[in-house]
């Protein structure tokens, strides 16, 4: 992606039509293609993992069961008994983001979680869900949360707008966190990879020194594997925390 002496680190995030003429006509870019791929991968993992349905699970089934148990315990432990109702949603969210982050690490692929449009859509979905659940669980008492308990009434005109803005900033911070982490990781890959190409232009000495950026990039892949799962986890756990506040009376 980075060619010659110029570094084009953002070119990798550009959307282009895929699948030839059909994709051109439908404005079908890599982003939805990789989303479908991610969804199919997760579905295939669960379907083929659970198909044996053995009492003593094989490796594949054990992995699928561990994933199920992990998210289920996270949802129920964080939200409480009501968490079981939200478990399918949180499971989908976590594995969709995780699959997106990890598919993006493969060479020549595309990271759809590096687009703010995608992460913001996910975060707004979570936000609307928490608002609806809050209104159903707490009714109009939900609005009482915007006035901090014990504060003077004279401060209400100042405190209520601040609390409302703080509440509204949740989906924004949720989406920016995932988006920024993914963009930063992939930009770093590109920068260090282009250092290798630049150093290769300096003959034998450059070839020797090029080992440095290659080593850094290998370390970055390890870091990105960690960041990918951590960001999916943070997204899911924050969804759980918001839902816990929503169902609390």
């Amino acid at each position: 992606m980075a060619g010659g002496s110029s570094i084009d680190v953002l070119g990798q995030f550009e959307l282009r039509p895929v699948l030839g003429g059909l994709g051109e006509a439908l404005r079908f870019s890599q982003s939805p293609l990789y989303m479908i791929l991610a969804a199919c991968l997760v579905l295939a993992f669960l379907y083929f993992g659970m198909r044996p349905a053995a009492v003593v699970p094989g490796r594949f089934q054990a992995a699928a069961e561990v994933c199920y148990e992990f998210i289920r315990s996270m949802a129920v432990d964080t939200i409480g008994p009501e968490g079981a109702a939200f478990f399918p949603f949180i499971f989908t969210l976590f594995f969709f983001i995780l699959a997106g982050n990890y598919i993006g690490l493969l060479p020549f692929s595309f990271t759809f979680t590096s687009h703010i449009a995608v992460t913001l859509a996910l975060a707004v979905m979570v936000f609307l869900l928490t608002v609806i659940v809050s209104l159903r669980a707490q009714g109009f008492r939900f609005f009482a949360h915007f006035m901090p308990a014990g504060a003077s009434m004279y401060l209400a005109p100042l405190l209520i707008p601040i609390e409302i803005l703080s509440f509204l900033s949740r989906p924004v911070s949720l989406s920016i966190r995932l988006f920024a982490n993914m963009v930063a990781g992939h930009v770093m890959f590109d920068i260090f990879a282009s250092f290798v190409i630049m150093l290769a232009g300096f003959g034998v000495v450059g070839d020797v020194f090029a080992i440095g950026p290659i080593a850094i990039n290998m370390a970055l892949v390890a870091l990105e594997l960690l960041v990918g799962v951590l960001q999916a986890y943070v997204f899911a756990i924050l969804t759980c925390i918001y839902l816990r506040e929503a169902v609390a009376h």
């Binding site: 996270m74 803005l165 924004v172 966190r177 756990i237």
Partner: peptide, 28 residues
């Protein structure tokens, strides 16, 4: 808490604090 355990490292906390601040400002 679960989140604290995951985000104990200082750069992660700094990044999170930064996004929290920026996002509220953006919304405002």
């Amino acid at each position: 808490s679960v989140v604290d355990k995951e985000e104990q490292s200082l750069p992660a906390l700094a990044l999170r604090a930064g996004t929290e601040m920026i996002s509220a400002l953006v919304v405002g």
